[in-house]
Design a protein around this nucleic acid. Structure first.
Lengths: 336, 336
DNA sequence: CTGAAAGCGCTAACAT
DNA sequence: ATGTTAGCGCTTTCAG
């Protein structure tokens, strides 16, 4: 590995000047800068992050914590984070907090404390108090996406608002018997997103003067299969049937569409279906949805972190706030 | 941040002993080891990777290069890599080589040369000669998954064999008019996987003494939508229709099933469909497939890398070789 | 604008 | 088995 001394020698300057020229910190004459650039190029020199970070305290590396890697939403957010960070020259270190509780504990207790990262992005993680504290103790910029965490800077989409928007769309089409697949009032106590979406659904109904029908609230685990089973319940059992279903995720909505087809219902003639997310398969299934632009969420989180990292000036409130969402009307919803 | 000196002082030993006790390298008495452990614990000390790696040359960090993050197969492989590496105490730095050619170039020219990683895992990347050379120049253990690269240690699944197995399954059920969705002979020149699968398909037919019907070869881009469109072509146009479809990926197979339903065909009564991958939605669609265990592929790559990293002894040929695959028969395939 | 030199916090000889 | 010490390769005062 070629080191800074070799570059300095070739460029005929000191290592200090090489460092300044390459990092852009401190003044260097245009001439020196150019000679350093040429020398570094010729030698294929790249600053050693280990030496640089030890000396400067900066790593140019951001830690990203995700709860799942193999679910579309999370990997899409991650994709956005990654592309924005890489364009800025940053590396990203990935911490996948899966089911394994031991690993999760280790991530907060050890991995993140190795001084390997300058900042942390936590994607849709429900952090307990301990974990929140451990993140704070790092003394680094931390930003969370989703699931408002009172003590963390959070980029959050208005889950209630999205759900209301989806429900209002169905109401606007004349639907009155609308079912919801997602959280059940009993089981979602500490899981923000499903609850918020259910509440938005109920608010919209209430605003329209419609009493929520408990039989039209079906739990679902956010997977295609979960949506499928929930819809089978809603459509298959005796008693009144909904004319529309609002699913708390696109994957469940797709499951619901498949279930409806399976039972001989035509979508949207016999049943309207709408979801939330903006899933890549939405277009394929002609699914109406409320898009929350997951890729953009990741990019935005990355930019917020970069802002805090680069301009030490306004580490104040950089773009932290509500994220955009948008109703996308496709072919899965129609008038009653 | 608490440093090694504080731990040394509290434990009443030198920093060298703390280092030895914590890293497990060199001899330390059980008593010292325990006192160090207690002291470190009490202070919440974690070895600074920046200092440690500068001094030792080891980072305990592995770089992982993936072509996509938001496709099920890749994120699942990554998931396997990540969990195995984290269990071993390793961090992973993620390099997502997406469409952006500039970023891709930078990854090989700069990111990977920052001395941030001890080894590299490249997941299903078609590397050109330059990139292969750049990887080799790193002087680090490198392992590739998929797409046999002659000059790299590669964990590869027998794509031709998988395709043959899938096709043989259909042949065994009495099918003779079998279509293939995947590579077209003209367009897949430098893309290994689609080609290999097509070749396996053709081999199986040939072995069974069946002439391949060019009309039964339909290109597809490995997506659900691509499979859907391809199947519509195969089933919708005038002339002889296949009784079975072998799709080169599960996502295309799912698309084919949906297309068949759309056209009023019942699967498997009117059409058998089989894919490759072991996609999580396979069970939901009752899809017969050849599972290639992507999660396990990732884990295996991780273990191979760890073996090279830890036992400097046999950096020889650790488990590099063919990956397992298995025919999973579900409800989408049946006798003619 | 530039150079000399003192670390950054560890690890790895080398002694003992 | 343990302590002493010299770096690892940069960055950053501090002078000039």
């Amino acid at each position: 590995m070629v080191s800074i001394d070799e570059v300095a020698k070739l460029a005929g300057v000191s290592t200090a000047t090489v460092s300044r020229a390459l990092s852009g910190r401190g003044h260097v004459s245009a001439a020196s800068r150019e000679r350093v650039r040429v020398a570094a190029d010729a030698l294929g020199y790249v600053v050693s992050s280990r030496a640089s970070s030890l000396a400067s305290g900066r790593t140019r590396n951001v830690g990203v914590i995700v709860p799942f890697l193999d679910r579309w939403f999370f990997s899409t957010v991650l994709s956005g984070v990654s592309s924005a960070l890489m364009r800025a020259g940053y590396d990203i270190t990935l911490y996948n907090i899966t089911a394994d509780a031991d690993v999760r504990r280790e991530v907060f207790a050890t991995f993140l404390r190795r001084q390997r990262v300058d900042a942390v992005i936590a994607v849709s993680i429900e952090l307990d108090d301990d974990e929140t504290q451990q993140l704070a103790d790092l003394g680094l910029p931390v930003i969370a996406i989703g699931g408002p965490n009172p003590s963390l800077k959070t980029l959050t989409v208005d889950d209630t608002g999205m759900a209301r928007l989806a429900t209002q769309h169905l109401l606007g089409l004349g639907h009155r018997d609308i079912a919801h697949i997602g959280a059940s009032p009993e089981f979602d106590l500490d899981f923000h997103i499903p609850t918020q979406r259910r509440l938005g659904f109920e608010q919209a109904l209430e605003d329209a003067g419609i009493a929520a029908n408990p039989a039209f609230l079906e739990p679902g685990d956010f997977s295609v299969d979960g949506g499928f089973r929930a819809a089978k319940q809603l459509l298959g059992r005796p008693g009144p049937r909904p004319t529309a279903i609002f699913a708390a995720s696109d994957e469940m909505a797709i499951g619901a569409i498949l279930a409806a087809r399976d039972l001989g219902f035509q979508v949207p003639r016999d049943l309207s279906v709408i979801g939330i997310d903006g899933h890549e398969l939405g277009e394929f299934f002609q699914l109406s949805t409320v898009d929350q632009f997951p890729m953009a969420q990741g990019e935005r989180a990355a930019h917020a972190i970069l802002a805090q990292l680069e301009d030490d000036a306004d580490a104040g409130t950089p773009g932290a706030g509500a994220l955009p969402f948008e109703l996308i009307v496709r072919g899965s919803t129609a008038r009653v």
